[in-house]
Design a binder for these strands. Sequence first.
DNA 1: GTCTATAGCATGATAGAC
DNA 2: GTCTATCATGCTATAGAC
Lengths: 220, 220
Amino acid sequence: MTSLTQPARGQHTKERLLDAAETLFAERGIKATSLRQITARASANLAAVNYHFNSKEALTQAVFTRRLDPLNGERLRLLGAAEKASGDSPVTLETTLHAFLDPTVKLWTEAPAFMLLLGRLEFEADEKLHGFYLTQFEEVLIRFKAAVTRALPDVPMKDLFWRIHFLLGAMVHAVTCHADLEWISGGLCQTQPFQEMVDRLVAFGVTGLRATPLYPEGNR
Amino acid sequence: MTSLTQPARGQHTKERLLDAAETLFAERGIKATSLRQITARASANLAAVNYHFNSKEALTQAVFTRRLDPLNGERLRLLGAAEKASGDSPVTLETTLHAFLDPTVKLWTEAPAFMLLLGRLEFEADEKLHGFYLTQFEEVLIRFKAAVTRALPDVPMKDLFWRIHFLLGAMVHAVTCHADLEWISGGLCQTQPFQEMVDRLVAFGVTGLRATPLYPEGNR
DNA sequence: GTCTATAGCATGATAGAC
DNA sequence: GTCTATCATGCTATAGAC
């Protein structure tokens, strides 16, 4: 098994370019990374990017699909399995959150640079890339939306969306800003190993999602 | 009162440059914004940036201090007033969170572009700017850390830090990614006016921070 | 204080030899 | 598939007229 974040000698140039681009995009941003930096890190020639991908934009999209396809596939597979196992009764909120988070943690362990890049994407992406990114999550959104709604039938949809939005923010922030946590806590909290963070995230999310609605009508 | 986000004729060139830089930095990132774009938007000459600020880097720092000084000053003032008012008993968690969030919302209303920029900063900043940014929050961190600890004496520090970290993530995400919320909710949730979002954020935060500790020992 | 003009450099992309 | 060489463009920063 070769490393997923650092270029290795044996890999094909195309793979090495993807690895190098992923790492550099995560470290310094997409626009701020030049093709020269990418090809240098991949031990490839400057012209290789345009030979293998035609453009920097196409390389960027390839960096994302390579990881997002398996990630979202696994999320849907886990949720589907849980739904099958629970029969007519709804899947619990904890199981649903884990179906979403566990594949994330797996990817996080295997390719930490990519998770960082995902966190950055909201700001890095131009209109085109952002649209492409949203379509990658379309099915996941529909399926998990339905599952959470079924797990929490008494919480109005509007409250749920707000809370899910906050929870996603907590997740993204946790992934991208470990350094800040360590700074804030004066070193007391560590983000390695990941499992503790995930446990805490799930607990935080379950508590937040389960709270009684803020406005009685639920649709202020 | 002139607009705080769009260049106006009457303002001095230096102010117009700050306004233009703030807006463009928020929209497309610091590194991705050129001096040509800034001076064009400010209706100023390309050389004006280097005349008034010496460099793009100094202009960037000025964009931040202009907003952060009053913001953090007001946060400290509100917390100090609440502590004075409550005498020997600790300030409640709600009051503490509001002392932090209310000035944020005020700034958000007056200069939405800057809040967006703040959310981006984690990824935009190089080592130098990031260090500068952290020092701007040093006193706020100390004071609010102490206030939250006093408000929740039974929650272990470690749990508190984790939860505050998650809550900060929810805040930043809420500020920066309205479009995503509207997309996820299919238009059901709107981030305007801000007050509803703040109410929900505080409720979400209070619930999350108050939860019983995840690990009995509190220091797994 | 504001302008034009330009130096000096890095970028994305391509042409064409091997 | 990989290389060198190069083009056109855009960048920050500066010099010097007004």
